[in-house]
Design a protein around this nucleic acid. Structure first.
Lengths: 352, 352
DNA sequence: CCGAGGTGCTATAACGATTAAGCACTCGAT
DNA sequence: ATCGAGTGCTTAATCGTTATAGCACCTCGG
């Protein structure tokens, strides 16, 4: 099918031009569909391009156009935010879908070291490797990120940012999520004494989820939650369980800021003979895959990561197109997903 | 810290040159450490570069050098191989680690449509967007892939390829894995009647795993396995379980070609009151995350996906550097991971 | 005092694509 | 016939970087 000419060196506009008997400029215009080139010539050029297997050289085009046509997904690789987490995969899927539809390559970037005083994010954009970047939640206080946003380069952040009010970001309503989870435990399962296992409180989403939990309790006229701080890792869920076991688990519901901690916690409680949901109700947050496959399944608040990624990409392309966005801040809704861990009865296989 | 000059247009070699009072050529040489430029001038140039926040323009460099410095990870997005699967995340982590250490951006590519008779893989490379590509297991028979490999462009395949003997690939010893899994069930758990739930048999790895299973049985003087063909999806595990339940589960071990099917199968058997491992032993394949968190945990054959990705990247860089690889085919070993589903007794929390 | 050989930079060209400006020609309207 | 407006192409310049050739100057050996 493809009349490829292996190893025959690259085919450039010049090759087509000399094959057809015009100048490279004419070929360029013809291939871009300019009406300045005659219909007949245009056709001959298109045929020749196909036959020679012409592919536009991206470097040449990028140099001329002053834009590469690619976007970057930046994942700061910290102990807290491990690249390789399902979350990023979901984001990536969303980003790549939108990006594909625009024919824009996606560059994955995970390094963070500074070089010559210019941080990796900025380097990526200034070097014209990518025209814009989506930055997946760095720590709330990231100096590099701050300078990146300040530089005015096209950047979309994943996750609500309080410290960077000018930044464009796409996030999720974590407060509502925390509230929803807690209210479910209160209203459906009669919880009155609630433990909240939070994420690291330098993360905005951890703060917001805790905040939501507090609000729900306050609204119900119940006392403050007992808060244990974790770090979103399964291990910290295990640690929290140990702490609760040591000090006496005096609660009827545990609202956890993510599913991984919830899993570690549940597993450890089970080892100690405390059954979820019979002895204590449990609800997680995220629903990136884990919560569905545990026993019991973890009731949780679903974060539409794929949607977030897609929306972030759309916003970024908007910035690149020069559209000043109507909303600089996009908040997507979360959704309660009921499984077994909260205590809800489930029909035979009410998975998903 | 960074003396960034927001929006002040790009800083080029020319800017540094005129700041220092030399030509762009001198600046270029100085920054690349040429000894043709005086020590004193070199230093002044470096200082100016830092102060102006100079970053090499990748398009300019790529155009001149005839190479972009990036590599691509191509994931054909078919129903069978869904981009977004943990497998690809692990690959990506491995690739990106090696790639980062060489300062090479990684481009994720997932589209497959052909355009002007040139497939997406080839387009990516011919356009000089990437210098080489790692292609994550397409179907065994992929015309586009065939033509890509034939074109001689720098490509490393993930997974053993029988149909493309000239291709460079990095895979895993699936036969040994299938054998190992089956032998474990035979030798440790006395299995004599074995069911094998395979992957789609147009996939080499599915074939190899089945082959391994057969060999182990033959070596033990046992009869052929009863083979049910799945498609690596959880749903096909569910379907297989139904089939077994309908026809009567006459087996003491089920060797499954991946963990997702094993999970679907196990879940469905459990619903029917058949307990794993008490009523029948089960062993999976892959260990990409799922197998660890189910109840019981799924004993499985671990595929070192991250390692594969890293090795593939290394091989690709080797190709790009012009080293003719000693081995065009890299086979990495698999490892048995014992959890609960096979019937092995486990210490309190022998997870991982 | 002259040529050989450094040293340290400049000048130039090239990578490939694109676009503004320009040129030659045709055609219709005046 | 003559001007104005197309039509269809070419010319030339540009994007930023870098390799190669070359030029000016200095120094040292003879």
């Amino acid at each position: 099918m493809s009349r490829t000419r292996a190893g025959s060196g690259r085919v450039t506009l010049r090759d087509i031009a000399s094959a057809v008997g015009v100048t490279p400029a004419a070929v360029s215009m013809a291939l871009r569909g300019s009406n300045r080139i005659g219909k007949d010539t245009t056709e001959r050029i298109q045929v020749a391009a196909r036959e020679l297997g012409y592919v536009t050289n991206s470097a040449g085009r990028a140099l001329r156009a002053q834009r590469s046509g690619s976007i970057a997904l930046v994942v700061p690789n910290t102990s807290q935010h491990v690249f390789g987490h399902p979350y990023f995969m979901h984001l990536l899927v969303g980003v790549s879908e939108v990006s594909d539809s625009r024919g824009a390559p996606v560059i994955i970037s995970t390094s963070v070291e500074s070089e010559h005083g210019i941080n990796a994010y900025e380097r990526l954009l200034r070097s014209q490797v990518a025209d814009g970047a989506i930055v997946a939640s760095a720590a709330a206080q990231d100096r590099d990120l701050e300078s990146l946003v300040a530089s005015g380069l096209p950047v979309v952040l994943i996750g609500r940012s309080v410290t960077l009010p000018d930044a464009v970001w796409v996030g999720v309503d974590d407060v509502a999520g925390g509230e929803l989870a807690t209210r479910h435990m209160i209203e459906e399962h009669g919880a009155r004494r609630v433990v909240h296992l939070s994420g690291p409180l330098e993360h905005q989403s951890a703060l917001d989820r805790l905040d939501g939990c507090r609000r729900a309790l306050a609204a119900a006229g119940l006392p403050e939650p007992r808060v244990i701080q974790g770090d979103f890792s399964e291990d910290s869920g295990v640690a929290a369980a140990r702490e609760l076991l040591d000090q006496g688990l005096d609660a009827d519901a545990i609202v956890v800021a993510n599913d991984e901690m919830a899993y570690g916690l549940m597993r450890t409680l089970a080892d100690a003979g405390i059954r979820v949901p019979d002895d204590v109700g449990l609800i997680g947050f995220d629903d990136f895959g884990l919560a569905r496959v545990t026993t019991p399944g973890i009731s949780t608040i679903r974060v539409p990561a794929e949607l977030i990624g897609g929306r972030a990409a759309s916003e970024l392309f908007g910035l690149l197109d020069g559209d000043e966005p109507a909303e600089r801040h996009v908040v997507l809704p979360v959704q309660l997903v009921v499984r077994g861990s909260c205590g809800c009865p489930l029909s035979a296989h009410d998975k998903n």
